[in-house]
Design a protein around this nucleic acid. Structure first.
Lengths: 211, 211, 211, 211
DNA sequence: GATGAATGAGGCTTCATTCAT
DNA sequence: CATGAATGAAGCCTCATTCAT
């Protein structure tokens, strides 16, 4: 039998991998240019296919964009939730871990473009914005709120306005993710992420801690 | 001579008011839709003129966008600098004043759209992004750095990494400005800005203060 | 005053004539090729404008097609109704006049393409088909019915099934209009319209008359 | 030889049945939408195959359309000719039989779409139009002419212009076939075919008969 | 024979930009 | 100054056609 058993699966893999290849390419181009300035031809080229192929898997440009947002970002949130659930240490340590994980999983990967895309395009895709707001923003806030609450109950943290404290824990992260992508070309010196995170964690915990 | 000297300037004012009317209209439409999705026809309609008129004052769509960013945001920074310069109280009080002023002058006005537009379009307008980064971001940071430095020297604040502490002082503001615009439609409950600012100022000062 | 008064009206005429020029061109191209095979570029070229101009006056290709049908054929029916109303002779003579007029006004002009287009595209434009059926077919039948009824009342014609007799009076006309357009290229001998009409009128009147 | 002779033909029949299944499906879709608006995907789906399969039997869409017209309509004409040849009664009776047979075999079956398709697409398929005109229209006319001639010779009919009388005998039929298909959706009341045919036959024979 | 994934030419449509008035 | 009719380049999307399996 000249044909190895492996040959067929490889083809199979290739076929079902198409949509993901396209999404990966789409993420790159949308991230660079935004929704309107992205040409499907560019996405196709980067995915190694032709324009028409995209339409085998996505109804149109808008659907591609939506799929991109929906299918790439939600897993990250889920992962964070799992980490929090499994965590057994102090609230301080969990806070720190979540902040650093978020940066590692989103801030430093190509996913960092998603928040920026959403901020840019929310007005043009209200329904997608709502999805994102509920499945990412709100869920992320709930996650962080839980950590703060845990700390308060454990006597580690001061009794603060939860909703607001949550937003304040996240916003330096969010802004860094978003702005760093946007102004990368303007910061030849780069951006001292390590210090930024360290200091945010330090200042925030210093600010929220008892004593 | 039937025409008074005043008559001509009045006409002049009216004439030179045109570009500002167009910029105002442009701000609204660009803010809603982003650069690419904005139609000059819509800008014109909102300004009460026709498409052709825009071209009397701006070379093209891109020039209009650049003028919008350049001419609306820089004055705000200058104003902040003036305030800081004239301020005679404690660093804590100046910090608080600048934060609140920024929110009042940008966060709550139509100018709030500018940072979001820049974040969305920086990739497509590198030269404008550089301008913005230098004339707004960097200058804003310099302003805040000065405040922190003043506090350190006065013994009010701990000796922190200035660059990073500056970014951390601004980012909750920036993120709030940007995200609030983007997800306004998704937050029917609104956004408790007062608490958010109060708490940021409180936590931040708590975190950075000696003792 | 170097500018003559005539110059402006000429331009004015030209402006408001645009839509009609486009409709005229559209009639020719749609008649040749049918709806789907017609390229708007060809319509534009024939109208002496460019593609974009069509969209100043018609929402899209479909709207252009609908406008074409609606605005060209209804007047013909109206004209026929007016003729019938004003006619004072015998029913026989009116019958003959209407038949010959229809041929002269539709069969021999570019309007002959409209019935053929409707027959071809009715399935793809149900709403337009309904409009045409009601405003042209039904109205045309009503017109012919009136003539037959007049003849019956006057004792000129036999007492026949009006609806059916009406259809039979029209169908040779309709078929000739439609088929002649379609198979023009296949009938080098042409089509002896004069005899055809003469004979139809003769046979029909012979058939329907009280003998 | 284990395979019986019958087995192969049966398979053969099945294989060669494919093209007919495709033609049947094609007739339905072309009839609904016309040539250009028909998607081969729809034809394939209706035939229970995939797009690629169509290309195993037909060179391309145009060839499919041509095969459809050629292979479905010619047999009907041949059948009519056979009937006429075998007929022994009066010309009047033969006339009536042919009219009614045509309606039964074409007007009331899916074949009714063929004349309408030809009228719609003749301009786009001149060669097919010529084929149709010669093999269907002309042959049909010749058939009817023969009947009329027979009646004239037998003293049943008046001495009329044969070509024209032939067309007038057919056109009510043709128009009914074509228009009924086109405006079916617009005639909820339906179309009283029985009366229509009865009256046409009656009027026509009344008109052409001696006395 | 049959499949269905992939192609890419072609057409509709939009809209920034121009220019005669 | 201002208009708005006209342009035409550019991009989305469709679908007939191909071809490796």
């Amino acid at each position: 039998m000249p044909r190895t058993a492996a040959a067929k699966p490889r083809w199979h893999r290739r076929k079902s991998a198409r949509p993901e290849e396209i999404l990966t390419a789409a993420l790159e181009v949308f991230a660079d240019r935004g929704f309107a300035a992205t040409k499907l031809e560019d996405v196709a080229r980067r995915a190694g296919v032709t324009k028409g192929t995209i339409y085998l898997y996505f109804e149109n440009k808008e659907a591609l964009f939506k799929a991109l947002v929906r299918e790439t970002i939600v897993p990250v949130i889920a992962q964070g939730e799992a980490i929090a659930q499994a965590f057994t240490g102090s609230a301080r340590d969990l806070f720190e871990k979540l902040i650093r994980d978020y940066w590692r999983l989103v801030g430093e990967t190509s996913l960092a473009s998603i928040p920026r895309l959403m901020i840019a395009e929310a007005g043009n895709f209200p329904e997608l914005a709502r999805f994102y707001y509920e499945e990412v923003v709100t869920r992320g806030h709930r996650l962080m709120s839980g950590v703060l609450e845990r700390g308060i109950k454990a006597g580690e943290f001061r009794r603060v306005n939860l909703a607001v404290a949550t937003k304040l824990a996240m916003s330096p992260l969010m802004h860094a993710v978003v702005a760093r992508k946007a102004f990368a070309a303007c910061m030849p010196e780069g951006f001292d992420v390590a210090s930024y995170l360290d200091t945010h964690i330090d200042l925030y915990l210093h600010g929220i801690s008892k004593s």
